[in-house]
Design a protein around this nucleic acid. Structure first.
Length: 853
DNA sequence: TAACAATTGGTTTTT
DNA sequence: CCAATTGTTA
């Protein structure tokens, strides 16, 4: 195609010929009318799509065609002559970004264009669709030098969770702090929270009052310093640094503002403080004065945000729902459009979702409605354990497919099916039972591959090639495979690096100064030579020479000795895991090859916009490719791996399901402690977020929905008694087909929701099978008493009284926190505990009581 | 020094 | 149950 970008077949004024002709779409839900309207757009959809200048808030209920509105709006802007490179759309996942880009192109060009060629087309060239994190990563690379952030060069590494932990452990070690008392993960959680609130180490220290906070402040600044020497930034830094860069550097900010005149943000309810500020800086703040002020007279900043407060599920990550709730105050004159009609789900599904979400008190009530007819009632099933639950789901999906096919409805293929769960641990049984039942499935775990030991090793090599200062990666590979550089040697070098404040690799180069054994020195020299061989002593890559990324990765895997290491292990033992490791290394090379084949520098948001073609240079330098590849690897999300054409059932967490839809959906594990998760039981706000999470899962379903709950569930290898989720009760029984398929005779009242205190499994009660003695096994937490002997009487009760004196606070996995009222002796020692929900009598041996005061 | 066995404690969710 | 760390042995 030539450069003149002919208008697509769907010019903006033709988006909805019917609506154009007749004004409001008909309210009746006749099949023909519905069909006609679904092809076009509803009035509010059309309005949002055509909105031109000034701030716009789209409050889009689940399934109301939100993505459609954004894509239409982008297409309509471009069609109206807005240059694509001046549009910036921010999505939640890379996957969503890719899809949006393609959909915009397909609206503009028609569906007949080869999708793989789409991105090359001029019509969308320079259009930026990206996640916040990718955008920030690119901006920081592009402007690293200019912004003059200490120690940050464009080669910087991105530290994701495992790297962060490793870095933190090193920091704690140098500070001489005990990791038992200062758990790296929880310190990191505190620091991330601070970063999400835009508090850097200094700002954090300034507001630290108590002992703990002051201690954290010390660790924070040491951690920040360690990352600087390593030329590394962590996930939260991506946002933090970008915000600071834009706020303090006028030239960079005006560069960005000059380029992006139109800003669109999806899933705005899940943005955190840092993201809010970045958006505000890019769009221009109408309420601010000075350099960050808005665009001056006119309709206001062209910022369009789309979201649904009922689907806010990332509060734990610092997301702040008030960003969307207060949008109209932040951007006066904002136009607000509400998309309330659901086009996705059957009335039964939508009704259940509505009844559930109504239980949230911190919520503006907004009715959910659909004009879709019919559909089957949703199903709720109680099974006896998680294995039966998984088997039931496998069966049900098979049946759902068959009936969809018979009725020639959508949903007749495996790819139309999905299973959601609260935590990843629940996927295991599902996998096993699906395999046994011959149901094809894929798991949306995008990061899993990159978390494998061998892959991480190879990537650590690549990161050192790109960024020799990267201490965490260097420490990982320096003696893997073993090359005679012992822990003692490395520790000594590290201590030196720390005291001199130099990157470890530099100290290693000057190994001669460190009084090492000749043998160790030789090993060290060899290692450095090997690395220098890949980088050409830092010159050939830096000179911008082109080459194949995959070839480089392959070379590194061989010459590092990783290949030989796993080959040796694979031939030595017949464990397939080592053979698998070799395959994974191959796959990594393949992934690098795919990346370089598909790499499109025109998508780099850090490139200047404008009408001149900044993309003339056709082959990107190898180092550039390597950086981009490592970055993409660091920023993959689980949801990125969802493949709608896979021909298999998709298994994923509820979080990952956001934004997707499937004809047939099962949500498993509707149990207290699982969904809602026990960690979410601590406050009303957290409980409401759990409820929204359930709501998100339910509203993914188009045709058929099945919610399941298992009476017993194995957690960490031990069977536990469960209580059905309160969410099931809240959904109620209208339009619900309920069935209790647990072969257990006790406990459930005939409404299906249980209230008893016998926590033994059927096997225990019948005296057969494995004895399950989970939890309060004496001697475990807090120096509990001697074992309760079988038939134990007073002795056991006495020691229990010692461990749980009346009045002490305890936590129960399902009931939450409570207070001990009394301990009763007997064959089985029981405790009377007062919980928020009422007083229960629990068998101490089986209830997992933990003292918490 | 490195590979292996024993022990311990513990992740909810993820860009 | 499992991974990650600590201790033990060739």
């Amino acid at each position: 195609m030539d450069g003149s970008a002919p208008p697509g077949p769907e010019a903006p004024h033709q988006f909805d010929p019917r609506a154009q002709a007749s004004g409001e779409p008909p309210a009746s839900a006749g099949a023909a009318a519905l069909e006609g309207r679904r092809k076009g757009l509803t009035e509010p959809q059309r309005e949002a799509g055509l909105h031109a200048e000034g701030p716009l808030l789209v409050l889009a209920a689940a399934g109301s065609g939100k993505t459609r509105v954004i894509t239409r709006r982008i297409a309509s802007l471009i069609h109206r002559g807005v240059p694509p490179w001046s549009i910036l759309a921010l999505t939640f996942t890379n996957k969503a970004a890719g899809e949006m880009r393609e959909r915009v192109a397909s609206i503009l060009l028609g569906d007949h264009i080869d999708a793989s060629k789409m991105h090359e087309h001029r019509a969308t060239r320079g259009l930026t669709v990206s996640t916040f994190h990718s955008l920030c990563a690119r901006l920081l690379r592009r402007y690293a030098a200019e912004a003059n952030i200490k120690g940050l060069t464009p080669e910087y590494s991105i530290y994701a969770s495992a790297d962060q932990t490793a870095a933190m452990k090193n920091v704690l070690a140098t500070l001489g702090m005990d990791t038992k008392q200062w758990p790296p993960r929880s310190i990191l959680a505190t620091i991330s929270n601070a970063k999400n609130e835009l508090l850097d180490a200094d700002a954090y220290a300034a507001q630290a009052n108590d002992f703990y906070a002051k201690k954290i402040a010390t660790i924070y600044s040491a951690y920040a310093a360690a990352l600087r020497t390593a030329n590394a930034i962590d996930f939260e830094d991506l946002l933090l640094f970008t915000e600071r860069m834009l706020r303090t550097n006028e030239t960079i900010l005006s560069n960005c503002r000059d380029r992006w005149r139109y800003l669109l943000i999806d899933e705005y309810q899940d943005t955190n403080r840092a993201q809010f500020e970045i958006a505000r800086l890019l769009a221009g703040d109408p309420l601010a004065t000075g350099p960050n002020a808005g665009p001056g007279p006119g309709p206001g900043p062209n910022i369009c945000v789309v979201g649904d407060p009922d689907q806010a599920i990332y509060g734990w990550r610092g997301a702040d729902i008030t960003n969307i709730l207060d949008f109209e105050q932040r951007y006066p004159g904002a136009r607000t459009i509400k998309l309330g009609e659901n086009f996705r789900s059957t009335p039964a599904i939508l009704g259940a979702a509505d009844r559930l979400i109504k239980h949230n008190e911190q919520r503006k009530d907004k009715p959910l409605f659909t004009t879709r007819p019919g559909g089957t009632p949703l199903e709720v099933t109680i099974t006896s354990d998680e294995r039966k639950e998984a088997a039931l789901v496998a069966d049900w999906l098979g049946a759902a497919r068959a009936s969809a096919e018979k009725a020639s409805q959508p949903g007749g293929a495996w790819k139309d099916c999905a299973v959601f769960y609260r935590t990843n641990a629940l996927s295991r049984v599902l996998e096993e039972e699906f395999r046994a039942a011959g149901v094809p499935y894929i798991m949306a775990r995008g990061t899993a591959f990159y978390e494998r030991e061998e892959v991480r090793n190879a990537l650590a090599y690549m990161r050192v090639v790109a960024n020799q200062a990267d201490t965490v990666s260097l420490l990982r590979i320096v003696n893997t495979p073993a090359r005679g550089l012992s822990k003692a040697t490395v520790d000594a070098l590290r201590a030196r690096a720390n005291s001199e404040g130099e990157p470890l690799f530099e100290i290693m180069r000057r190994g001669r100064e460190s009084a090492l054994q000749p043998r160790t020195l030789k090993a060290l020299d060899r290692f450095i030579e090997t690395v220098d061989g890949w980088t050409g002593s830092g010159s050939f890559m830096g000179a911008g020479i082109s080459g194949s990324l995959a070839d480089l990765v392959d070379r590194v895997i061989r010459e590092s000795g990783l290949q030989a290491l796993y080959e040796k292990r694979a031939s030595g033992s017949e464990s397939d895991s080592d053979a698998e490791r070799l395959e994974n290394l191959d796959q990594l090379v393949t992934s690098a090859r795919e990346f370089e084949n598909e790499y499109d520098p025109t998508r780099d948001p850090a490139l200047p916009g404008g009408d001149e073609d900044p993309f003339a240079e056709d082959v990107p330098p190898l180092l550039e490719l390597l950086r981009a590849w490592l970055e993409s690897v660091a920023l993959v999300a689980d949801a990125d791996k969802v493949d709608p054409e896979s021909g298999a059932v998709t298994l994923m967490t509820l979080h990952a399901s956001k934004g997707l839809e499937f004809a047939n959906v099962a949500v498993v594990g509707l149990e207290e402690g699982v969904l809602p998760h026990f960690r979410g039981n601590e406050s009303e706000a957290m409980l409401e977020e759990e409820r929204r999470l359930a709501f998100v899962g339910i509203t993914r379903a188009m045709q058929r929905l099945h919610l399941t709950s298992a009476k017993y569930r194995q957690v960490r290898g031990v069977t536990e008694r469960t209580i059905p989720s309160r969410f099931l009760e809240e959904i109620g029984r209208d339009d619900v087909r309920f069935s209790d398929q647990s072969d257990d005779y006790d406990t459930y009242r005939d409404d299906g929701y249980r209230d008893d205190t016998d926590q033994r499994s059927p096997a225990e009660r019948s005296g057969r099978g494995t004895t399950i003695t989970r939890g309060w096994t004496p001697g475990r937490p807090l120096g509990a008493p001697a074992p309760i002997a079988s038939g134990g009487g007073n002795a056991a009760a006495d020691s229990a009284r010692e461990a749980f004196p009346p009045g002490c606070r305890v936590r129960h996995p399902q009931f939450g926190e409570g207070t001990i009222e009394s301990i009763q002796a007997g064959q089985l020692v029981r405790a009377k505990v007062k919980f928020r929900t009422g007083t229960k009598t629990l068998v101490l041996e089986y209830a997992r009581l933990r003292r918490i005061d």
